[in-house]
Computed example of a mutant assay.
Amino acid sequence: MKALLCKAFGTADSLVLEDIPSPVPGSDEVLIDVHMAGVNFPDTLLIEGKYQIKPAFPFAPGSEAAGIVAAVGAGVSHLQPGDKVMALTGWGSFAEQVVVRASQVTLMPTRMDFAGAAAFGVTYGTSMHALCQRARLQKGETLLVLGASGGVGLAAVEIGRVMGAHVIAAASSKQKLEVARAAGAHELICYGNGSLKEQVNALTEGRGADVIFDPVGGDLLDQAIRAIAWNGRLLVIGFASGRIPQLPVNLTLLKGAAVLGVFWGAFTQRQPQENQANYRQLFAWHAEGKLRPLISQQYALARAGDALEALRLRKAVGKLVVEIRKGSS
């Protein structure tokens, strides 16, 4: 089978397309013929050796996949060959086949195609966990989403709106903000138009945001914590800016605020039943037309490194996917 391999930590242009043996599923594992793979920011960290997980070389990046079950190992009863599925792989999805733990594989909703399924799992799963289990977002609260035109940002905008929040989307350009508006944001903030705190206060009559969703980190977190409401919750999703900020904790004291880490990957392992309940609700909202993954670009497997680089440079809008098998839909 063909796979795009990382043989040493480095940049996306060091990945190589090679033929390697097909994997074999063990007990409680599933072998999937991958049709589409999603591209996520942690994939860029993985190949650079900056992620908390470091697979043995060589490995294929790609943390989520959509495809068809080719074979199942002993002990797998809820899946069978021929099932259309979406899977959280950790890595390995930039390949024609991947072996995944059965617990990380879910049947695709009938109204999803392979591209949509590959674009759905990580971003919507992360944002749902952040807003439900971590922030406990309530109807009528104000939700500020930073990086609102990216994959998790857009998912947070959509989910926040469905949950009844007043959603403020923040991004770096008018073009990106229009994407967030189309996803359901009520208000828009452009970073270049002045102080983030002043812009948030102007839109909230000085109260600030009840929940702040931050996948960017760096200078934006430094500014965002100053725009938080009394009893507000700041969600730490990631650090796409490249800098992990040092939080002045006195600001949390002054606002009675909470800073909440969001490690969705660990949540899927430690609280699988709650994660599956989240997916059931997400799939229901998708079926009702309330969630619509935005796929802005599709790449061939040989060019998946270009997708990783676009994500690293924060040039991507919405979700990027990799077509593993030509003609997949």
Rank of each mutant, 00 (worst) to 15 (best):
F114L: 00
V39L: 09
K319S: 04
T142Y: 04
I32E: 09
A266R: 15
D113G: 12
A185P: 15
A87T: 01
P215A: 00
I47V: 15
V322C: 07
R303W: 03
G238E: 07
I68K: 14
M36K: 10
A170G: 11
G90M: 05
F41I: 01
S22Y: 06
L291S: 12
V162I: 14
A183P: 11
R134A: 00
A165C: 03
G10C: 06
Q80R: 11
S328T: 11
P25R: 01
G150W: 09
D19P: 10
D222T: 13
G10K: 06
M108A: 01
R292E: 03
N278Y: 11
Q175K: 12
Q97T: 10
A12W: 13
Q223H: 13
A169W: 12
A74N: 12
K2L: 07
A102Y: 12
P23I: 02
K176R: 15
G73T: 10
S22C: 03
W285M: 08
F267R: 06
L291D: 10
A202Q: 14
D113K: 00
W285C: 04
T123R: 04
H286L: 08
A240S: 07
Q269Y: 13
G125I: 01
Q297R: 11
A258L: 10
N193C: 06
L320Y: 15
L15W: 06
C6I: 02
M36H: 08
K255Y: 10
Y191H: 09
S328R: 10
L79P: 14
K7N: 11
V69N: 09
G289M: 01
G232F: 04
G318K: 06
A165I: 03
A71R: 08
G75D: 05
V122E: 01
L143R: 07
D306F: 10
E178T: 09
R292A: 05
H78N: 11
R303I: 00
F213K: 07
A3W: 08
G327D: 03
V30Q: 09
V211W: 09
E18S: 08
Q246L: 07
R134Q: 07
K290F: 02
F59Y: 15
E158K: 02
S173F: 11
T204F: 03
V317H: 12
L4K: 06
Q175R: 10
I228A: 08
L282H: 14
G73S: 08
G73F: 12
V145P: 11
A95V: 07
G116D: 07
L308K: 06
E64Q: 14
C6Q: 09
R314Q: 05
G164T: 14
D13N: 12
